[in-house]
């Protein structure tokens, strides 16, 4: 167990350094000095802001020193000041936007798991049945569905046509005067469509993987053994089969986290949700470089945290890895 943890920590450390190097390289993507391009593209930048940037990134020093200085600040969560007119620290801005993005992603992840795993298992068990065929068609549509288009269609249907769900933001007008339970219901009503959209593609993908993984397990010798011992088929599937079939799923969940976080840009923008994705979009549009860099780094750290959770989950499901 100890060596396992050491190995994982070391791997994470290397990945973190790698991610920061790539992120740092992006600052230098712009031709010439980053500050030169800033002034060309963004005439609003004052000489003071420019001097601040040069100082922040230490642009007069060699590249390695620049990286060392930057990473030292990043570890302290100092991403500098936003270019926008409020000049607030980047980390403060991210901090107030992060929770809602996390809640939505966690909620959609839970929904994905709760729906996709049973669907995948049942279509594997009832392979080639009508049910299996219908879910397979559903999966192909789910794979191909652009999330933002689904969002538009739902907004059109539930918001514009039926008028039963709000289509933008998190709170209705007059929110401040609501009672506590009204507030909760109001926010939940605003969250139904965004969570549905962000879970949709994931349900299709994961149920497909679950089906494949379960089919693989059903073929194994120990399943035949269990059957020949005369165990009931439910017990065989859910006790002997499921645990083994879940292993690859845990890995895939870990791998799908970057996609979920990246996707938040799209649905937060479509539904006007004030989360980190929308903040990132705004920072890209206004070329607020410190904010872009800050969110890029935080997104990567979140992914790392997700991967760590997936590794721990793997260890929980598979005792062999703990040795």
């Amino acid at each position: 167990m100890f060596t396992y943890l050491t190995k994982k920590t070391l791997e994470m450390l290397i990945t973190f350094v790698g991610i920061t190097v790539i992120s740092f390289a992006i600052i230098h993507l712009a031709p010439g000095k980053p500050t030169d391009v800033l002034t060309d593209l963004n005439p609003k930048i004052t000489p003071e802001a420019r001097a601040k940037l040069e100082k922040y990134y230490g642009l007069d020093k060699p590249v390695t020193t620049q990286y060392a200085l930057w990473i030292k600040r990043v570890v302290m969560l100092d991403f500098g000041e936003s270019f926008s007119s409020d000049h607030r620290p980047v980390w403060t801005k991210i901090k107030e936007r992060l929770p809602i993005t996390l809640y939505i992603n966690i909620a959609s992840l839970l929904i994905i798991l709760v729906i996709a795993i049973p669907v995948g298992i049942s279509s594997a068990v009832r392979r080639h049945s009508l049910y299996d065929k219908v879910t397979t068609v559903g999966v192909f549509i789910g794979f191909a569905m652009p999330g933002f288009w689904l969002a538009l269609l739902l907004m059109m249907f539930f918001g514009v046509h039926l008028h039963i769900l709000p289509v933008a933001g998190l709170k209705s007008a007059g929110f401040a005067d609501f009672t506590f339970s009204q507030k909760v219901i109001d926010i939940l009503r605003h969250l139904i469509l965004p969570i549905f959209v962000s879970a949709f593609g994931g349900v299709a993908g994961l149920s497909r993987y679950m089906r494949g993984s379960m089919l693989e397990v059903i073929r194994q010798d120990y399943m035949t053994t269990a059957r020949s011992k005369g165990l009931t088929s439910n017990r065989i599937i859910y006790v002997h089969g499921l645990r083994n079939a879940l292993l690859p799923i845990v890995t895939i969940l870990g791998l799908s986290i970057p996609g979920l976080i990246g996707g938040s840009v799209i649905f937060e923008q479509v539904f006007s949700i004030p989360g980190m994705g929308q903040l990132f979009y705004m920072s890209v549009m206004s070329r607020d470089y410190p904010l872009v860099m800050g969110i890029l780094t935080i997104g990567a750290v979140l992914t790392l945290a997700g991967n760590l959770l997936a590794d721990l989950g793997y260890a929980a499901v598979d005792p062999r890895t703990r040795r």
Binding site: T15, I19, I22, S23, I26, L29, L255, P258, G259, I261, G262, G263, V265, I266, F280, Y281, V284, V292, M293, I295, L296, G299, A300, L302, T303, L304, N307
Partner: peptide, 12 residues
Amino acid sequence: LSIPTFFLILAV
């Protein structure tokens, strides 16, 4: 694989 690709694309 650990970098949210869509973020990376937008940043670039």
